[in-house]
Measured scan of single mutants.
Amino acid sequence: IQLFSRPDFLGDHFSFEDDQAALPASFRPQSCRVHGGSWILFDETNFEGDQHILSEGEFPTLTAMGCLASTVLGSLQK
C-alpha cells in the first residue's frame, strides 16, 4: 500500500508491505494506492477505532477510502 500526504497521490508518501501498529505521528494520509490484496485502515493506533477496508485500487481522497474528510488514520493491517 502507498499512502500520500495530499489528495490525488501528491505530497510525501510512505509505502508499506506489512502491518503498521502506528503511522508516523506527523504523517496524515489523504490518498492511497492499494497494490494487491486488501488492507484495513484504522482511525487509531494499535489497530483500534473505526475500520476502513480497501481492496486493490486507487483512492484519490479520504472520502474515496470510505472515511470522513476529517479522519486521521493511525494504523493499518494487511
Rank of each mutant, 00 (worst) to 15 (best):
residue 18 D to F: 07
residue 76 L to D: 04
residue 68 L to F: 09
residue 38 S to P: 10
residue 49 G to T: 04
residue 57 G to K: 01
residue 66 G to E: 07
residue 20 Q to C: 15
residue 51 Q to N: 10
residue 5 S to Y: 05
residue 14 F to R: 08
residue 7 P to L: 05
residue 54 L to M: 07
residue 31 S to C: 07
residue 31 S to H: 07
residue 12 D to W: 06
residue 8 D to V: 02
residue 18 D to E: 14
residue 28 R to I: 14
residue 5 S to K: 01
residue 39 W to R: 03
residue 43 D to V: 08
residue 62 L to F: 06
residue 68 L to E: 15
residue 22 A to C: 14
residue 42 F to H: 04
residue 28 R to C: 10
residue 76 L to G: 01
residue 10 L to T: 13
residue 64 A to Q: 09
residue 62 L to R: 08
residue 12 D to F: 08
residue 11 G to C: 05
residue 47 F to L: 05
residue 49 G to D: 05
residue 78 K to E: 06
residue 24 P to E: 04
residue 69 A to H: 14
residue 1 I to L: 05
residue 53 I to D: 09
residue 69 A to Q: 15
residue 54 L to V: 15
residue 63 T to E: 15
residue 62 L to D: 05
residue 43 D to P: 08
residue 60 P to R: 06
residue 57 G to L: 00
residue 66 G to Y: 02
residue 52 H to K: 08
residue 34 V to N: 00
residue 51 Q to G: 13
residue 6 R to P: 03
residue 2 Q to W: 07
residue 70 S to M: 04
residue 66 G to L: 02
residue 14 F to W: 13
residue 55 S to I: 09
residue 71 T to R: 08
residue 63 T to H: 14
residue 6 R to T: 00
residue 30 Q to M: 15
residue 42 F to E: 03
residue 17 E to P: 04
residue 32 C to L: 02
residue 33 R to H: 03
residue 4 F to E: 01
residue 7 P to F: 04
residue 54 L to Q: 05
residue 21 A to V: 12
residue 32 C to Y: 05
residue 33 R to F: 00
residue 14 F to H: 10
residue 67 C to F: 14
residue 16 F to T: 07
residue 27 F to G: 01
residue 39 W to M: 01
residue 14 F to L: 15
residue 67 C to N: 03
residue 77 Q to C: 12
residue 4 F to V: 03
residue 15 S to K: 12
residue 4 F to M: 01
residue 44 E to Q: 13
residue 38 S to E: 15
residue 41 L to Y: 04
residue 9 F to I: 05
residue 69 A to W: 07
residue 51 Q to P: 10
residue 78 K to V: 11
residue 9 F to G: 02
residue 50 D to M: 11
residue 18 D to Y: 09
residue 44 E to D: 14
residue 2 Q to A: 08
residue 68 L to P: 15
residue 71 T to Q: 10
residue 41 L to E: 00
residue 10 L to P: 04
residue 11 G to Y: 02
residue 54 L to D: 00
residue 2 Q to T: 15
residue 27 F to L: 07
residue 3 L to K: 00
residue 3 L to G: 00
residue 54 L to A: 06
residue 8 D to P: 02
residue 11 G to D: 06
residue 15 S to W: 12
residue 47 F to V: 02
residue 18 D to W: 05
residue 34 V to G: 05
residue 70 S to Y: 07
residue 3 L to T: 00
residue 48 E to V: 09
residue 73 L to I: 15
residue 62 L to Y: 07
residue 16 F to R: 02
residue 9 F to W: 00
residue 19 D to V: 01
residue 19 D to W: 03
residue 77 Q to R: 14
residue 7 P to Y: 04
residue 63 T to R: 12
residue 66 G to W: 01
residue 49 G to W: 04
residue 36 G to S: 13
residue 17 E to I: 15
residue 44 E to A: 12
residue 29 P to W: 02
residue 53 I to S: 10
residue 10 L to G: 12
residue 67 C to Q: 02
residue 40 I to V: 13
residue 52 H to Q: 00
residue 78 K to R: 15
residue 60 P to G: 05
residue 66 G to K: 04
residue 23 L to M: 10
residue 7 P to I: 05
residue 61 T to W: 01
residue 47 F to G: 03
residue 50 D to V: 12
residue 76 L to A: 08
residue 41 L to M: 08
